[in-house]
Design a protein around this nucleic acid. Structure first.
Lengths: 233, 233
DNA sequence: GTGACATATAAGTCTGACTTTTTGTTCCCG
DNA sequence: CGGGAACAAAAAGTCAGACTTATATGTCAC
């Protein structure tokens, strides 16, 4: 997905990033740039660029006379989309999915409330369109089409909130929803109750009813929490 | 703060990062690596490392035969602590502060609710200690001491939530609170009502009353929103 | 044991040559 | 006159080698 192979250093990252985020090198492990360069058969300059990127993600720290030290998980930039993707692809997937779903449960209701106040007429229209698309594909194992509209729906909500930080979570939510459809148990058609809630959120936003939009969205995200067996009120 | 001068490429970033995030180069502007290297009086290798880091933050995109293109604001990794710091230091400060405060208003109440369920006895103790520290320094222009305990309080809440993504926002909240104390209008002693709320949150967490902890924290964050004239319910 | 000093090590830096990709131009032919 | 293929130039990408610098660690005298 996104950007496969944007240069040699990117290839290195595609291997090293997932390895580190998967915990293959325990915190405190020390790597040497030269050794890594040999292992990946690239020049030191390329390897250094890769290390610099990992460093900017706070996955590693490079110190003179010591080497490249792998940092503890609590230091990582867990909001970096690249890091999120690496973790979603590895063995940490379930935990990452839980973290993200909890984050969603905090952010999306507030975003929906703001969207109800700030959404443009175009965004309102887009929203109802998405909701209708979800309804139309909610039966007959049209999972891909359903997912497409579901992702679009949440993206519009987050964008319409007018908050750049919320908007930036659109990609994350997309990956969570896609993950649920593709990897996890989702053989059956989506829950009709969830579909209805989306339609109602679209209505509430169009009606500028912030409180209602927030409450309904909270119901949606609480459903997502329950799917993952995360304790709810 | 944090890491001043971790190598030559870091110095370059200290100048180039703020410049880009401040909007000095409009989206679509094209820079050339060699020219930049000359301008900053560093070698191309160092400049390339800096560009790679900016690229990993999605601030720029490097393409052959074209150069280093500055990306649109909506592409930026606005959750990267470095990017946040750069923006808080520049002319985008007010907007960044608003975004972050809205994010806080979404995250912290949910985090407090989770903390009420999951906090360890040690964390509960720490929390009450912080709240008491806030009370003790809430009068007599002891702003720095008050800030210290305030930051610690919110950090404990976010950490005790058990969610790594929430925990990671501790630093961000710290910068927001520090910014409010140092830059903005905060000559008077803190609002007594806010102090009381913190004490009550600590009590609620200790009493494992998730709903109450969430509600009280929501009151705190709504106060923060009002301070910035962000429309509230 | 403590402090100063020496040493080895690995990252950091610079330079210059070469490769590769991409874009824009030119030129030929339909 | 238009479209497509060949060409040329530009900028990033890659590599190899030499050199610098910081620093952890070990050594020795006191």
């Amino acid at each position: 997905m996104s950007t496969p192979g944007r240069g040699l250093h990117g290839r290195v990252l595609d291997t090293l990033g997932p390895a580190i985020t998967a915990g293959e090198y325990p915190a405190g492990s020390v790597l040497r740039t030269d050794e890594l360069a040999q292992r990946f058969e690239v020049s030191r300059s390329v390897m250094r660029e890769a290390v610099r990127v990992l460093e900017s993600m706070h996955l590693v720290e490079s110190r003179r006379r010591v080497g490249v030290t792998v940092l503890a998980e609590c230091e990582w930039n867990v909001y970096d989309p690249q890091v999120i993707r690496w973790r979603l692809a590895g063995s940490e997937r379930p935990r990452q999915l839980r973290s993200l779903t909890v984050l969603r449960s905090a952010v999306e209701p507030v975003a929906a409330g703001l969207a109800a106040r700030l959404a443009t007429p175009e965004q309102c229209a887009e929203l109802t369109e998405c909701a209708l698309g979800m309804v139309a594909n909610s039966r007959g194992h049209r999972l891909e089409e359903y997912l497409f509209h579901d992702v679009a729906f949440h993206r519009v909500i987050l964008t319409a909130s007018g908050n750049e930080m919320f908007a930036r979570l659109g990609g994350v939510v997309a990956e969570v929803l896609a993950g649920r459809t593709h990897h996890d148990v989702m053989f059956e058609d989506p829950d009709p109750a969830a579909v209805t809630l989306h339609v109602q959120v679209a209505e509430a936003v169009r009606a500028r009813d912030a409180e209602r939009a927030e409450r309904l969205t909270r119901e949606i995200t609480e459903g997502a929490l329950q799917e993952l067996d995360i304790l709810a009120p």
